[in-house]
Computed example of a mutant assay.
Amino acid sequence: MDWDDLRVFLAVARAESLSAAARVLKCDAATVGRRVARLEEDLGAKLFLKSPQGYRLTEPGRRLIPHAETAEQAMSGAAEELSGQTGGLSGQIRIGAPDGCANYVLPQVCGAICDANPGLEIQILALPRMVNLSKREADFAITVSRPTGGRLTVQKLADYALHLAGDRSYLAAHPPITALADLRGHRMIGYIPDMIFDRELDYLAETGAPTVDLASNSVAVQMQMVRAGAGLGIVHDFAIPACPDVVRVLPEAIALRRTFWLVRHADDRRSERLTRFAEAFAQATRTEIARLETLAAGQ
């Protein structure tokens, strides 16, 4: 059995299409199809069923997955060992993250890590949804709820604060806000209710604030709405320093605390390279969030 055929098999299983797998593998879909057919012939078993939804694993295909992933880990470990990665980190690492974290924290964190490891390439996948590690969309995922199922390794990344905030221009044009009752009549900014992909993101329901009038599934868009003076919104403290005229409102009455979790596939725990990256990344993230929150408190 050829390892390269197994690599192609895993790419198709994760992408569920020949064309998507081809993009990952940087080859053409016809080549991917031939490699899958060759592996099926070698094994004497059909590994995929083609349907309108894409390529679905058959029962033999599902049984092959853990063996192929074991081979993948072995090849990765061998590459790390032979490359002598005892010093700096190198190669490509992809991180999936909520767009608030991706926009306001990760650029500084990843930039600093790359400065210390010139051979390292970091990709940030910013999505307003959960990242699928089983399909290998990323090496790591940052989540706002601790996952409880699946074959995953989970570690606490950092706690972070959120407050109600508004732009100085909006606050100057509206009556003073000194108590929760004063929020009535103010335009509220938040998530599109039916697109809240994690219960931890339902901020306004927790605070009892009025109904959302301006909404987006993107934290970055919500912050830009606040920055434009369009209303008030619950924002991450670590985002406030990027918007100098945005200030916290009723910080004692409306204060939320959440946690970021760093998640990876359980099979990757044997990768020294990914473990070393996780340690450096967690420390840098905690330090950066603390720095930004200190700046926000001083505004």
Rank of each mutant, 00 (worst) to 15 (best):
L6A: 09
L6I: 04
R7F: 07
V8C: 11
L10K: 10
V12L: 12
A13V: 08
E16G: 00
L18C: 02
A21W: 10
A30W: 03
G33W: 02
R35H: 14
E41C: 11
G44I: 10
S51C: 03
S51K: 07
Q53D: 06
Y55W: 13
T58D: 06
E59H: 08
A68G: 05
T70R: 09
M75N: 06
L82M: 06
S83D: 11
Q85M: 11
T86P: 00
Q92K: 14
P98K: 06
G100S: 15
C101W: 06
Q108C: 05
A112Q: 11
L120D: 12
I124H: 02
M130A: 11
I142D: 09
T143I: 05
R146I: 02
L152A: 01
Q155T: 10
A173K: 14
P176E: 09
R187Y: 03
G190K: 12
D194M: 06
I196N: 06
Y203L: 00
T207N: 02
L214T: 05
A215V: 04
V221M: 11
V221A: 14
V226H: 07
L232C: 06
L232K: 07
I234D: 01
D237G: 15
A242C: 09
R248N: 08
E272S: 11
R273S: 13
L274R: 15
T275N: 15
A284H: 04
E288W: 01
A290N: 02
L292C: 12
E293Q: 13
E293Y: 05
A296P: 09
Q299A: 11
